[in-house]
Simulated scan of single mutants.
Amino acid sequence: MRFTDMLKSRLWASSIFLALFLSCDRKNSKSIGDKYLVEKVPTESPLPFLPGLVSDKYLIHKGIFSNDLDEYYFTVSDKNFAKFDVKVIHKENGQWSASENAFFNSNYNDHGMSFSPDGNTVYFSSTRPVESERAVDTWHIWKSELMRGKWQQPEYVDIPNLREKLTSHPTITQEGNLYFHSSNPDYSNMDLFVAKLRDGKFQNAKKVFESGSPRCTPYVSPNGDYLIYASIEGQLDLMISNKKANNNWGTPRPLPSRINDNGQGNPYVSPDGDFLFFTKGGEEWSVQWVSTKAFMSMTDDSY
Rank of each mutant, 00 (worst) to 15 (best):
W12P: 00
L18Q: 12
L18I: 14
L20M: 14
S23I: 09
Y36H: 13
T43Y: 14
P46N: 12
P48F: 02
P51W: 03
V54G: 02
D56N: 09
Y58P: 01
H61S: 03
K62A: 08
F65A: 00
D68R: 06
E71Y: 07
V76A: 03
V76T: 10
S77W: 09
K79R: 13
K79T: 10
N80G: 06
A82W: 00
A82T: 14
A82C: 01
V86M: 04
V86F: 02
K87R: 14
K87H: 07
V88Y: 06
K91E: 00
E92N: 07
S97G: 10
F103G: 04
N105L: 00
D118W: 08
G119V: 05
G119L: 05
N120E: 10
S132H: 14
E133M: 11
E133T: 12
A135Y: 00
H140C: 04
I141D: 08
I141C: 11
W142V: 04
S144L: 08
E145A: 12
L146V: 04
L146M: 09
R148A: 11
G149Y: 02
E155I: 09
I159Q: 03
K165Q: 13
K165T: 06
S168P: 01
T171C: 10
I172L: 08
N177S: 15
F180R: 01
S182D: 00
S182E: 00
S183M: 03
N189W: 11
L192E: 04
L192V: 04
R198S: 15
Q203F: 01
Q203I: 02
N204T: 09
K206N: 13
V208W: 05
F209T: 05
S211V: 10
G212C: 10
R215M: 15
P218H: 03
V220P: 00
V220Q: 06
G224Q: 06
G224F: 02
Y229R: 05
I232E: 10
Q235L: 11
Q235P: 00
D237S: 10
S241D: 09
A245C: 01
N248Q: 14
N248L: 10
W249Y: 10
W249C: 10
T251H: 12
T251D: 11
R253W: 11
P256T: 05
I259K: 06
D261F: 15
D261K: 14
N262Q: 15
N262I: 14
G263E: 12
Q264R: 15
Y268A: 08
V269C: 12
S270N: 08
D272G: 08
D274S: 14
F275Q: 03
G282E: 11
E283D: 13
V287S: 03
W289V: 01
W289C: 01
S291T: 09
K293C: 02
M296E: 11
S302D: 09
